[in-house]
Design a binder for these strands. Structure first.
Lengths: 107, 107
DNA sequence: TTCGTTTATCGTCGATAGACGATAGAACAA
DNA sequence: TTGTTCTATCGTCTATCGACGATAAACGAA
């Protein structure tokens, strides 16, 4: 079992908002740290962006490290492994040419 | 660009509930059609289950085909391709040679 | 036709999410 | 010390979610 239903649902819910997808994309495209630039990029109030960052951090998708006056945010991709495994399990015939159709164990 | 932020967020939001993860798992484990058995399996009221099915269907994750008196539900895995691509794009580093469907510890 | 079965929709309720402005806290510069 | 900058939290509001029971709609059987 790649993960519990609640664990997967929590990860999916954390990604279930366009602003948070945008934030993740920004972090993906930014090699190093990124701080208040996120606020300008997403076009929302600073408090709203901070709330989205808190949700992503609570889900373990990102990590925030205090670096001087600002905070260094970075992705924590491993946190999405249960969700990725779940989605991969139900998309065997995709053109990814990736995984063999491994038989599921009974649950 | 695998998909728009809203498209990915909608897919993630549709998966952002434990009951819907459970429904998808049931459909995954059931080769053929499945109808009212879902209600018994998830342990919620029939109207609630119908609502979850409606959400999953609206997101394109499942499809319902009328088959006599009941409805045949089946997965539509291709709908999750944008979300799968998004998650895969931000997990290039460890563990993903490509295959390895489960990143669980092996001992 | 009527009856039974299965699914979808409606109405309502409480809980949660999402947005904002305002404020508080932390770290550096001068 | 003061001042500036950046981030987190608080309070409040509206909108949406999730659950339920009740009801309607569609279909097959009798």
């Amino acid at each position: 079992m790649p993960g519990s239903n609640e664990q997967i649902a929590d990860l999916a819910k954390a990604l279930g908002h366009p602003a948070r997808i945008r934030i993740v994309r920004l972090l993906m495209a930014t090699p190093g740290c990124i701080g208040g630039d996120i606020v300008n990029a997403v076009g929302l109030a600073q408090s709203t962006v901070s709330e989205h960052l808190r949700i992503l951090k609570a889900a373990g998708i990102i990590s925030g490290e205090i670096s001087g006056p600002k905070v260094c945010y970075a992705l924590t991709p491993d946190a999405l492994a249960p969700l990725a495994a779940f989605i991969a399990a139900l998309t065997p015939p995709t053109g990814t040419g990736c995984c063999l159709p491994v038989a599921e164990e009974r649950s």
